[in-house]
Design a protein around this nucleic acid. Sequence first.
DNA 1: CGTCACACGTGAGGC
DNA 2: TGCCTCACGTGTGAC
Lengths: 223, 223
Amino acid sequence: MPIAQSLVLDNEKEKLVKTSEKKSGISEVKKMMALKKHSESEKRRRERINDHLITLRGLVPSNEKMDKAMLLAEVISQVKQLQKNAAQSSEGLNIPLEFDEVKVEKLEGYAGNGSSSFRASLCCDYRPDLFSELRRALDDLPVHLVKAETSTLGGRTKNVFVFTSSGEGKNENTEARELISSVRGALSNIVNKASASAKHTQELYFPRKRQRVSYFDSSSSSS
Amino acid sequence: MPIAQSLVLDNEKEKLVKTSEKKSGISEVKKMMALKKHSESEKRRRERINDHLITLRGLVPSNEKMDKAMLLAEVISQVKQLQKNAAQSSEGLNIPLEFDEVKVEKLEGYAGNGSSSFRASLCCDYRPDLFSELRRALDDLPVHLVKAETSTLGGRTKNVFVFTSSGEGKNENTEARELISSVRGALSNIVNKASASAKHTQELYFPRKRQRVSYFDSSSSSS
DNA sequence: CGTCACACGTGAGGC
DNA sequence: TGCCTCACGTGTGAC
């Protein structure tokens, strides 16, 4: 179709110059209006997208000077990171596992003063005397408890302790190793005692939907 | 600059016709190559951006059928939500406050199925019967407990529950409001009872260093 | 000069 | 058909 050269776009605003002769008139102007609508609506679309990108720029820590692709990459890593954290704090870390576990480890962060801090966790079936046993065990150890946290779900319980060594020094690493192993031993005893007396092994895990959750007691039938 | 009309774009592929006279030949070819480079580079840029958008599509819960703008909106709310959660769980959430507090709120994130989820927290002095009272109170309420978490520090305790409505619907918002207020009422009762019987107000807050921490019992002398 | 990132207008294809 | 979204090539301005 040799309509080429028939249209020249002026640099003036929306001026349409027709150099050919035949079939002039209405259809052309209609096309133009359609095109105009189209380009305006496309502009709106771009605006919408870019507004969202601007908003996102405000949400990521790193400041202005990033192009679109970098921004999106940042957002991606941000989301991944946050999701991981959320998953950790709501699944991995705080929701009791379905198998028994004792973990003791040194925390790399500072403890404030010189002494290092530790994190111990144990996961087992819940039983009423668990907490008093734990307290007794921890009182007997040369540790300084900083934080205790327990979560209970579906008859299982997970307990996390953060503590520092009581500070009666000798070599730091030696002390840390001894402390870790004694804490681990104490907690393991408790967990093993628990599983020895475990007869109420009902609902060790739950089918992920509509599970009935009892708070601090797996046997009471509740409401 | 009257270079206008000097260039006419043919509808043929990449044919550039110069209607003026001088300087024909090589420079035109160069221009063409430059244009080609340009468009290829633009294509790469678009690819980078779109790849990131694809990745993001995989990270948001809601599935495929969203256009770019909606996707970005989703990402924005997702990021905001996760940031809020992260802030909550890393700051205020886990360390018991030094003043009593009851908070119940609707969580904005999805609960998976239709029903919304809620977060209730209360902070008060620890006392031995606290947990059984809490359990009784929660059993009496039409809630479906998803997660329970308690932390204890310096004779104070903070308890956080995440739950969904039991789903016996009516209007969602109405139900949510009623649920929130009844949960708040129940928890407030417990906290107030606690502070009423509070005589052992020793060490309500601690000087941040070398505090003595008791696990689940602020009054017993331990060991 | 090249190169980069952005906005624009336009064609294609889906409802 | 009209309106939408998307990809493309190009114009432009900043280093």
